[in-house]
Design a protein around this nucleic acid. Structure first.
Lengths: 259, 259
DNA sequence: AACGTAATTCCGCAATGCGGAATTGCTTAA
DNA sequence: TTAAGCAATTCCGCATTGCGGAATTACGTT
C-alpha cells in the first residue's frame, strides 16, 4: 500500500507515511511557479490521483494550500508562509545581523547574505541586496552549493576534520567524476581561509560575480555554523577591490555581529 | 482513536488525520522561539507523547524539524524555510513591488509593506523598513488585524458588498461586544477611502505609529486583493505629513507597481 | 448530444497509526 | 555508588484510517 520511494522507510514502523505524502505534495511546488492542477501534483509526487485528492483536500482545509475558485488549481497557502517566517524568527542571529547587513550593503554598494550549511548546500537566512544589478537574485530560503560559492567555502573551512570526512561521501555523490577537481579547489580554499581569514569565489558560481565569504566566530553551541557572503558584479569589483576592501570589511561585519 | 478537535473533521472520511497531526506539530512553534522539547510539543498539540515522538521522528527524517544533538530539543528545519520562500516566490507581484518599495522606504524614511487578506487578518508578503525605529518589527509572514490597521482597512474598502457580508460573522466573532464600534470605524474608513483613495490608522493599531494604506489596482483575477501600507513613528510624521505627503506618494507607488 | 479528460468520490481491504503500557536513558540527590 | 524521578522512546494489540483502483461526476470542446 505504501508508495514511499525509500524501502528502509517502508519497513520503518515509526515513520508516518501519510504525513510524508502530504509534505511531498507541498514540496511539489517550485519557486516562481503559480498554481498547479491535481494532475500535475499527481505526476510530480508519483502518487495516485485519489491519494492526491484526499491530501489536497486536507491541506486546503488547514490553510496550507489554497484553491483557485475559477480554475480549481492549487497554490501554497499562507499557513506555509507563517511556518517559514517562524523558522526565520527562531534564528536569533538574524535580529542582530539584519540591520548591520543592510548598513554594510548600503555603505559598500554590494549584496551581503547570511547562510547556514545544510548537507552540501548553503541555505540563505538573510540577504540584503545592493542597488547594482546582479544576475542571481537569491532570496531567503535559496540554496547554493557549498563547493563553488564563497559562503560555502567559508563554511567548509571551519568544519572539523571529522565533519569534513562525514561530508565527503555526499560531495562525492554530488560531483561524481568532477569530485577530485572540486576537492582540490576546496582544499586550496581551506588553506586560503586559514591564511587570510576569508574565502573567495570569483566568477565560479555565477559568471561575472565576485564573492568573498567569512564564517561568524564562536557559533552558538548545538547550532550549525553560520557564514556571511558579500558579492557584486565583476564590472564594479575587481579581484583587488574584493581582497583589499570588501574582505576586511566583511570580517569586521562578522565581528560586529558576534562580538 | 482520532484526536482532532473538530468533530466534523472526525467524521470526514476524506480528511487525512495523520497529516493534520503532523502539521499541528510544526504549527506549535511560535515566532521568536528556539528549540522545543517533546513534552512541550505534546502539551501544545494536545497529542499523546508517543504520537508526538512518531511525528517528530518523521518530520526530522524529512528535514522539516531538526533535533539538537545536546538537548534533544527540536526546532523547525530548513525544509520549512524552503516551502515558505516558495510561497513568496509564487506571488509575481513581489518581484515588481520589492525594488520600488525599497526605493520608497529610502526616499520617504518610512516603512512600507505589502500584504494580502486572509480571513480577518492581513498577512505581510513583503516589508521594507526605514531606518527610524518603530515599536513593531513586522516581518514577512506576520499577521495584523484587518479592522485596526491602515492596510487592513484598505483591503476592506475594496471588498464587494457580498464579500463584506461574508466576512461580517468572522469579524463579529473576533470582536464580540466591541464589534458595533469596530464596524462603525470600518464603515467610516470605507467612506474615507471612497473619498480620498487611501485609508488611515493613526495610533490605533500600534501606539505612536502613523499609517496609511492603499489597495493595488486591478488585482490579478482569482487572487485575493493585495494592499500597501506605509507607517512611521508619530514623532516623525504628524497627521498632516501622512495626508499631504505620504498618502499621495503611496498611491503613486501603487500605480507604479500595477500600471 | 456525444466525447474526452480531469477531478472527485466510492468502497473493500489491510496496513498503518494510534495511545497506553513498558522500557530506556539521563540527571539529580542521598 | 545507588536510588529516585522524569522525559523520551519503543512496544504492541487493536481497529480506524488511508490506500488505490474503479466508478462517477463535472466541465469543456466538437
Amino acid at each position: 500500500m505504501s508508495s514511499n520511494p525509500d524501502t528502509d522507510e517502508e519497513k520503518d514502523r515509526l515513520f508516518v507515511g501519510a504525513l510524508a505524502r502530504g509534505l511531498r505534495v507541498l514540496a511539489a511546488f517550485q519557486p516562481g511557479e503559480g498554481a498547479l492542477s491535481n494532475q500535475v501534483l499527481a505526476q510530480r509526487t508519483d502518487l495516485p490521483k485519489s491519494t492526491v485528492s484526499r491530501l489536497t483536500y486536507t491541506l486546503t482545509k488547514l490553510g496550507y494550500l489554497s484553491q483557485d475558485h475559477d480554475t480549481g488549481y492549487y497554490r501554497l497557502g499562507l499557513a506555509v508562509l507563517a511556518l517559514g517566517s517562524t523558522v526565520l524568527g527562531s534564528y536569533d542571529i538574524r535580529r542582530v545581523a539584519s540591520p548591520l547587513m543592510r548598513e554594510f550593503a548600503l555603505d559598500n554598494t554590494i549584496s551581503v547574505s547570511l547562510g547556514m550549511r545544510d548537507g552540501t548546500d548553503i541555505v540563505y537566512l538573510e540577504t540584503c541586496r545592493s542597488q547594482a544589478r546582479v544576475s542571481v537574485q537569491l532570496t531567503v530560503g535559496s540554496r547554493v552549493p557549498l563547493a563553488s560559492t564563497a559562503i560555502g567555502r567559508a563554511c567548509y573551512a571551519i568544519l572539523s576534520p571529522a565533519e569534513r570526512a562525514a561530508l565527503a561521501p555526499e560531495l562525492a555523490q554530488r560531483y561524481g567524476g568532477d569530485w577530485p577537481a572540486v576537492a582540490a579547489r576546496l582544499q586550496a580554499s581551506c588553506e586560503h581561509y586559514a591564511q587570510f581569514g576569508y574565502s573567495e569565489s570569483f566568477g565560479e558560481f555565477e559568471r561575472d560575480v565576485m564573492a568573498v565569504g567569512v564564517a561568524l566566530p564562536s557559533p552558538v553551541p548545538g547550532m550549525p555554523v553560520v557564514c556571511l557572503n558579500a558579492s557584486g558584479p565583476a564590472f564594479a569589483f575587481n579581484a583587488e577591490a574584493m581582497r583589499k576592501q570588501i574582505a576586511p570589511a566583511l570580517m569586521q561585519l562578522a565581528r560586529r555581529i558576534v562580538p
